[in-house]
Protein backbone atom coordinates (compact mmCIF):
# COMPACT_ATOMS: atom_id res chain seq x y z
CA UNK A 1 0.00 0.00 0.00
CA UNK A 2 1.41 3.34 -1.02
CA UNK A 3 0.35 6.35 1.01
CA UNK A 4 1.43 9.82 0.08
CA UNK A 5 1.42 12.38 2.83
CA UNK A 6 0.97 16.14 2.50
CA UNK A 7 4.13 17.80 1.30
CA UNK A 8 6.65 18.11 4.11
CA UNK A 9 6.70 21.86 3.72
CA UNK A 10 3.00 22.23 4.33
CA UNK A 11 3.25 19.89 7.27
CA UNK A 12 6.00 22.03 8.80
CA UNK A 13 3.93 25.16 8.31
CA UNK A 14 1.02 23.41 9.96
CA UNK A 15 3.09 22.35 12.94
CA UNK A 16 4.73 25.77 13.28
CA UNK A 17 1.37 27.50 13.28
CA UNK A 18 0.12 24.94 15.72
CA UNK A 19 3.00 25.61 18.07
CA UNK A 20 2.41 29.34 18.04
CA UNK A 21 -1.14 28.94 19.25
CA UNK A 22 -1.39 27.26 22.59
CA UNK A 23 -4.91 25.92 22.32
CA UNK A 24 -7.07 24.80 19.44
CA UNK A 25 -10.64 26.04 19.88
CA UNK A 26 -13.39 23.45 19.96
CA UNK A 27 -16.96 23.71 18.73
CA UNK A 28 -19.94 24.32 21.05
CA UNK A 29 -22.47 21.62 20.37
CA UNK A 30 -26.18 22.27 19.92
CA UNK A 31 -25.98 25.62 18.12
CA UNK A 32 -28.57 26.64 15.54
CA UNK A 33 -26.90 27.14 12.18
CA UNK A 34 -28.76 26.76 8.90
CA UNK A 35 -26.36 25.37 6.34
CA UNK A 36 -26.46 24.63 2.64
CA UNK A 37 -24.10 22.17 0.96
CA UNK A 38 -23.90 23.25 -2.67
CA UNK A 39 -21.98 20.88 -4.99
CA UNK A 40 -21.01 21.67 -8.58
CA UNK A 41 -24.12 19.75 -9.57
CA UNK A 42 -26.16 16.82 -8.37
CA UNK A 43 -25.81 13.22 -9.37
CA UNK A 44 -22.13 12.37 -9.06
CA UNK A 45 -20.79 10.17 -6.31
CA UNK A 46 -18.01 12.27 -4.68
CA UNK A 47 -20.44 15.07 -3.84
CA UNK A 48 -22.87 12.59 -2.29
CA UNK A 49 -19.95 11.27 -0.24
CA UNK A 50 -19.10 14.81 0.89
CA UNK A 51 -22.73 15.17 1.95
CA UNK A 52 -22.42 11.99 3.99
CA UNK A 53 -19.48 13.54 5.83
CA UNK A 54 -21.43 16.75 6.39
CA UNK A 55 -24.41 14.79 7.72
CA UNK A 56 -22.13 12.93 10.09
CA UNK A 57 -20.78 16.24 11.47
CA UNK A 58 -24.30 17.68 11.57
CA UNK A 59 -25.47 14.85 13.83
CA UNK A 60 -22.30 14.88 15.91
CA UNK A 61 -22.55 18.59 16.67
CA UNK A 62 -26.27 18.38 17.44
CA UNK A 63 -26.97 21.37 15.20
CA UNK A 64 -30.62 22.33 15.71
CA UNK A 65 -30.58 24.18 12.39
CA UNK A 66 -30.97 22.53 9.00
CA UNK A 67 -28.46 21.00 6.62
CA UNK A 68 -29.68 21.27 3.07
CA UNK A 69 -27.99 19.41 0.19
CA UNK A 70 -29.00 21.02 -3.05
CA UNK A 71 -27.44 21.74 -6.39
CA UNK A 72 -28.10 22.56 -10.03
CA UNK A 73 -28.40 20.20 -12.99
CA UNK A 74 -25.17 19.60 -14.93
CA UNK A 75 -26.33 21.54 -18.01
CA UNK A 76 -27.28 24.50 -15.86
CA UNK A 77 -24.39 24.39 -13.40
CA UNK A 78 -23.14 27.99 -13.64
CA UNK A 79 -26.48 29.81 -13.71
CA UNK A 80 -27.89 27.28 -11.24
CA UNK A 81 -25.12 27.76 -8.67
CA UNK A 82 -25.52 31.53 -8.91
CA UNK A 83 -29.29 31.17 -8.45
CA UNK A 84 -29.02 28.86 -5.44
CA UNK A 85 -26.41 31.04 -3.76
CA UNK A 86 -28.55 34.14 -4.32
CA UNK A 87 -31.66 32.40 -3.01
CA UNK A 88 -29.76 31.20 0.06
CA UNK A 89 -28.96 34.84 0.83
CA UNK A 90 -32.64 35.77 0.48
CA UNK A 91 -33.65 32.85 2.71
CA UNK A 92 -31.25 34.05 5.40
CA UNK A 93 -29.21 30.83 5.45
CA UNK A 94 -26.18 31.11 7.75
CA UNK A 95 -23.58 29.37 5.60
CA UNK A 96 -23.33 28.12 2.06
CA UNK A 97 -20.65 25.46 1.50
CA UNK A 98 -19.78 25.75 -2.17
CA UNK A 99 -17.82 23.57 -4.55
CA UNK A 100 -17.50 26.25 -7.20
CA UNK A 101 -18.03 25.41 -10.84
CA UNK A 102 -18.68 28.94 -12.07
CA UNK A 103 -15.20 30.44 -11.95
CA UNK A 104 -15.26 34.10 -11.02
CA UNK A 105 -18.77 34.42 -12.42
CA UNK A 106 -20.08 33.51 -8.98
CA UNK A 107 -18.07 36.18 -7.15
CA UNK A 108 -20.74 38.93 -7.32
CA UNK A 109 -23.39 36.52 -5.98
CA UNK A 110 -21.03 35.40 -3.21
CA UNK A 111 -20.30 39.01 -2.26
CA UNK A 112 -24.05 39.75 -2.22
CA UNK A 113 -24.68 36.71 -0.01
CA UNK A 114 -21.94 37.81 2.40
CA UNK A 115 -23.51 41.29 2.51
CA UNK A 116 -26.84 39.65 3.40
CA UNK A 117 -25.14 37.82 6.28
CA UNK A 118 -24.62 34.44 4.64
CA UNK A 119 -21.08 33.13 4.93
CA UNK A 120 -19.58 31.39 1.92
CA UNK A 121 -17.11 28.59 2.62
CA UNK A 122 -15.71 26.88 -0.47
CA UNK A 123 -14.48 23.30 -0.62
CA UNK A 124 -13.15 21.11 -3.42
CA UNK A 125 -13.01 24.06 -5.83
CA UNK A 126 -12.58 27.68 -4.66
CA UNK A 127 -13.53 31.03 -6.16
CA UNK A 128 -10.42 31.88 -8.25
CA UNK A 129 -10.23 35.53 -7.17
CA UNK A 130 -11.21 34.71 -3.57
CA UNK A 131 -13.86 37.46 -3.76
CA UNK A 132 -16.90 36.77 -1.59
CA UNK A 133 -15.26 33.71 -0.05
CA UNK A 134 -14.76 33.39 3.72
CA UNK A 135 -12.46 30.37 3.63
CA UNK A 136 -11.48 27.53 1.35
CA UNK A 137 -11.22 23.96 2.64
CA UNK A 138 -8.60 22.42 0.34
CA UNK A 139 -8.55 18.66 -0.04
CA UNK A 140 -4.79 18.37 -0.49
CA UNK A 141 -1.99 20.78 -1.25
CA UNK A 142 -2.45 21.69 -4.91
CA UNK A 143 1.31 21.52 -5.53
CA UNK A 144 1.55 17.98 -4.19
CA UNK A 145 -1.25 16.81 -6.49
CA UNK A 146 0.91 17.91 -9.41
CA UNK A 147 3.84 15.83 -8.18
CA UNK A 148 1.67 12.79 -7.56
CA UNK A 149 0.14 12.97 -11.05
CA UNK A 150 3.59 13.37 -12.62
CA UNK A 151 4.84 10.38 -10.63
CA UNK A 152 1.91 8.17 -11.60
CA UNK A 153 2.44 9.10 -15.24
CA UNK A 154 6.15 8.32 -14.88
CA UNK A 155 5.48 4.94 -13.37
CA UNK A 156 2.79 3.91 -15.90
CA UNK A 157 4.66 5.16 -18.98
CA UNK A 158 8.03 3.90 -17.85
CA UNK A 159 9.33 7.43 -17.90
CA UNK A 160 8.94 8.17 -21.60
CA UNK A 161 6.36 8.94 -24.28
CA UNK A 162 3.41 11.19 -24.99
CA UNK A 163 0.48 11.80 -22.67
CA UNK A 164 -2.51 14.14 -22.50
CA UNK A 165 -4.75 15.66 -19.85
CA UNK A 166 -8.54 15.36 -19.84
CA UNK A 167 -9.90 17.93 -17.40
CA UNK A 168 -13.36 19.07 -16.29
CA UNK A 169 -14.47 22.60 -17.27
CA UNK A 170 -11.96 25.10 -18.67
CA UNK A 171 -11.90 27.34 -15.64
CA UNK A 172 -12.51 25.03 -12.73
CA UNK A 173 -9.99 26.63 -10.40
CA UNK A 174 -8.97 23.35 -8.78
CA UNK A 175 -8.40 21.54 -12.08
CA UNK A 176 -6.31 24.32 -13.54
CA UNK A 177 -4.21 24.64 -10.39
CA UNK A 178 -3.49 20.90 -10.42
CA UNK A 179 -2.62 20.85 -14.11
CA UNK A 180 -0.34 23.86 -13.63
CA UNK A 181 1.27 22.11 -10.66
CA UNK A 182 1.83 19.01 -12.76
CA UNK A 183 3.40 21.05 -15.56
CA UNK A 184 5.67 22.62 -12.95
CA UNK A 185 6.62 19.20 -11.60
CA UNK A 186 7.35 17.94 -15.13
CA UNK A 187 10.24 20.41 -15.42
CA UNK A 188 12.28 18.08 -13.21
CA UNK A 189 14.89 16.25 -15.35
CA UNK A 190 13.45 12.96 -14.12
CA UNK A 191 10.48 13.52 -16.46
CA UNK A 192 12.53 14.84 -19.39
CA UNK A 193 11.41 12.09 -21.79
CA UNK A 194 7.70 12.54 -21.05
CA UNK A 195 5.76 14.95 -23.23
CA UNK A 196 2.39 16.50 -22.39
CA UNK A 197 0.87 16.88 -25.85
CA UNK A 198 -2.66 18.12 -25.21
CA UNK A 199 -5.15 19.37 -22.61
CA UNK A 200 -8.84 18.86 -23.37
CA UNK A 201 -12.04 19.42 -21.42
CA UNK A 202 -14.92 16.99 -20.87
CA UNK A 203 -17.01 19.40 -18.79
CA UNK A 204 -17.32 16.75 -16.07
CA UNK A 205 -19.99 15.04 -18.14
CA UNK A 206 -19.52 11.35 -18.91
CA UNK A 207 -20.65 11.48 -22.53
CA UNK A 208 -18.51 14.50 -23.41
CA UNK A 209 -15.47 13.13 -21.57
CA UNK A 210 -15.85 9.73 -23.25
CA UNK A 211 -15.82 11.32 -26.71
CA UNK A 212 -12.94 13.64 -25.86
CA UNK A 213 -10.89 10.67 -24.68
CA UNK A 214 -11.45 8.85 -27.97
CA UNK A 215 -10.65 12.03 -29.90
CA UNK A 216 -7.36 12.27 -28.03
CA UNK A 217 -6.38 8.80 -29.16
CA UNK A 218 -7.28 9.67 -32.75
CA UNK A 219 -5.37 12.93 -32.84
CA UNK A 220 -2.25 11.63 -31.07
CA UNK A 221 -1.28 8.22 -32.50
CA UNK A 222 1.64 7.85 -30.09
CA UNK A 223 -0.38 8.62 -26.99
CA UNK A 224 0.48 6.32 -24.08
CA UNK A 225 -1.58 7.80 -21.26
CA UNK A 226 -4.62 9.95 -20.51
CA UNK A 227 -4.27 11.77 -17.19
CA UNK A 228 -7.65 12.91 -15.91
CA UNK A 229 -7.71 14.82 -12.63
CA UNK A 230 -11.50 14.46 -12.33
CA UNK A 231 -13.54 11.49 -11.14
CA UNK A 232 -15.95 11.82 -14.06
CA UNK A 233 -13.21 12.18 -16.66
CA UNK A 234 -11.05 9.30 -15.47
CA UNK A 235 -13.95 6.86 -15.40
CA UNK A 236 -15.22 7.93 -18.82
CA UNK A 237 -11.70 7.70 -20.29
CA UNK A 238 -11.12 4.25 -18.82
CA UNK A 239 -14.46 3.06 -20.16
CA UNK A 240 -13.67 4.52 -23.59
CA UNK A 241 -10.30 2.74 -23.74
CA UNK A 242 -11.85 -0.50 -22.55
CA UNK A 243 -14.79 -0.34 -24.98
CA UNK A 244 -12.49 0.30 -27.93
CA UNK A 245 -9.97 -2.32 -26.82
CA UNK A 246 -7.25 0.29 -26.52
CA UNK A 247 -6.09 -0.50 -22.99
CA UNK A 248 -2.88 -2.17 -24.15
CA UNK A 249 -1.82 0.96 -25.95
CA UNK A 250 -3.29 3.83 -23.93
CA UNK A 251 -3.53 3.74 -20.14
CA UNK A 252 -5.62 5.99 -17.95
CA UNK A 253 -4.71 7.64 -14.66
CA UNK A 254 -5.64 10.64 -12.56
CA UNK A 255 -8.03 11.25 -9.68
CA UNK A 256 -10.80 8.68 -9.33
CA UNK A 257 -13.12 6.99 -6.90
CA UNK A 258 -12.12 3.44 -5.94
CA UNK A 259 -15.72 2.24 -6.21
CA UNK A 260 -15.95 3.49 -9.79
CA UNK A 261 -12.43 2.56 -10.85
CA UNK A 262 -11.95 -0.88 -9.34
CA UNK A 263 -12.73 -2.88 -12.49
CA UNK A 264 -10.49 -0.72 -14.68
CA UNK A 265 -7.63 -1.01 -12.21
CA UNK A 266 -7.92 -4.77 -12.03
CA UNK A 267 -8.08 -5.19 -15.82
CA UNK A 268 -5.11 -2.92 -16.31
CA UNK A 269 -6.81 -0.01 -18.11
CA UNK A 270 -6.12 2.30 -15.19
CA UNK A 271 -3.30 0.71 -13.22
CA UNK A 272 -2.78 3.62 -10.82
CA UNK A 273 -4.90 6.53 -9.67
CA UNK A 274 -5.18 8.71 -6.60
CA UNK A 275 -7.79 10.34 -4.41
CA UNK A 276 -8.59 11.72 -1.00
CA UNK A 277 -11.69 11.01 1.03
CA UNK A 278 -14.66 13.12 0.02
CA UNK A 279 -16.48 12.02 3.17
CA UNK A 280 -13.71 13.60 5.24
CA UNK A 281 -13.76 16.70 3.07
CA UNK A 282 -17.49 17.16 3.70
CA UNK A 283 -16.98 16.54 7.42
CA UNK A 284 -14.13 19.05 7.73
CA UNK A 285 -15.98 21.63 5.64
CA UNK A 286 -19.00 21.28 7.89
CA UNK A 287 -16.94 21.73 11.07
CA UNK A 288 -15.17 24.77 9.63
CA UNK A 289 -18.43 26.37 8.51
CA UNK A 290 -20.23 25.62 11.77
CA UNK A 291 -17.47 27.15 13.87
CA UNK A 292 -17.27 30.16 11.59
CA UNK A 293 -21.04 30.72 11.83
CA UNK A 294 -21.09 30.31 15.62
CA UNK A 295 -18.21 32.77 15.95
CA UNK A 296 -15.78 30.27 17.48
CA UNK A 297 -13.36 31.12 14.71
CA UNK A 298 -13.18 34.41 12.85
CA UNK A 299 -11.61 33.08 9.69
CA UNK A 300 -8.24 34.76 10.32
CA UNK A 301 -4.87 33.31 9.36
CA UNK A 302 -3.27 31.44 12.29
CA UNK A 303 -6.47 30.39 14.06
CA UNK A 304 -6.42 26.74 15.10
CA UNK A 305 -9.49 24.62 15.78
CA UNK A 306 -10.44 21.02 16.42
CA UNK A 307 -12.57 19.35 13.74
CA UNK A 308 -14.01 16.42 15.68
CA UNK A 309 -12.55 13.04 14.76
CA UNK A 310 -10.18 14.57 12.21
CA UNK A 311 -8.11 16.53 14.74
CA UNK A 312 -6.65 20.05 14.64
CA UNK A 313 -6.45 22.36 11.66
CA UNK A 314 -5.02 25.84 11.19
CA UNK A 315 -6.16 28.58 8.83
CA UNK A 316 -3.35 29.69 6.53
CA UNK A 317 -2.70 31.85 3.49
CA UNK A 318 -3.59 30.08 0.26
CA UNK A 319 -0.29 29.88 -1.62
CA UNK A 320 -2.09 29.61 -4.97
CA UNK A 321 -4.42 32.56 -4.52
CA UNK A 322 -2.93 35.74 -3.01
CA UNK A 323 -5.17 37.22 -0.31
CA UNK A 324 -7.33 34.10 0.05
CA UNK A 325 -7.31 31.81 3.10
CA UNK A 326 -7.45 28.06 3.23
CA UNK A 327 -7.57 25.05 5.49
CA UNK A 328 -5.56 22.12 4.20
CA UNK A 329 -7.02 18.66 4.70
CA UNK A 330 -4.62 16.10 3.18
CA UNK A 331 -3.28 13.44 2.89
CA UNK A 332 -4.29 11.35 -0.07
CA UNK A 333 -3.88 7.82 -1.29
CA UNK A 334 -2.56 6.25 -4.48
CA UNK A 335 -4.64 3.21 -5.48
CA UNK A 336 -3.29 0.20 -7.38
CA UNK A 337 -4.57 -3.33 -7.87
CA UNK A 338 -3.14 -4.11 -4.42
CA UNK A 339 -5.37 -1.80 -2.42
CA UNK A 340 -8.27 -0.73 -4.63
CA UNK A 341 -10.57 -3.65 -3.84
CA UNK A 342 -10.50 -3.08 -0.11
CA UNK A 343 -11.42 0.59 -0.56
CA UNK A 344 -14.10 -0.01 -3.17
CA UNK A 345 -16.30 -1.97 -0.80
Amino acid sequence: MKHLKVSTLALCALLAAHGAHAQAVTADKGGKVNMVLLPKFLGILPFDQANRGAEEAHAELGNTGTLLYTGPTPENSVAGQIEILTTAGSQGQDVVMLSNNAGDQIAPAAEAAQAAGTKVVTWDSPIPSGKGESLFVAQVDFGSIGVVMADMAHSIMGGEGEFAVLSATPDAANQNAWIAAMQEALKDPKYANMKLVDIVYGDDQSEVSYNRALALVDSHPNLKLIMSPTTVGIQASAKAMQDEGLCDRVKVSGLGLPAEMVSYTLNGCAPEFALWSFVDLGYLTYYTSYMLATGKIKGEVGETFTAGRMGDYTIEEDPGRPGAKRILMGPFTVYTKDNVEAEAK
Partner: peptide, 13 residues
Protein backbone atom coordinates in the same frame (compact mmCIF):
# COMPACT_ATOMS: atom_id res chain seq x y z
CA UNK B 1 -21.84 42.68 -16.28
CA UNK B 2 -24.02 40.75 -13.85
CA UNK B 3 -21.51 37.97 -13.21
CA UNK B 4 -18.40 40.10 -13.74
CA UNK B 5 -16.60 37.39 -15.70
CA UNK B 6 -17.00 35.42 -18.91
CA UNK B 7 -15.96 32.14 -20.41
CA UNK B 8 -16.70 30.23 -23.60
CA UNK B 9 -19.76 28.42 -22.29
CA UNK B 10 -21.53 31.57 -21.10
CA UNK B 11 -25.33 31.46 -21.70
CA UNK B 12 -25.04 27.99 -23.25
CA UNK B 13 -28.42 26.25 -23.54
Amino acid sequence: ARVGAIRGDIAQG
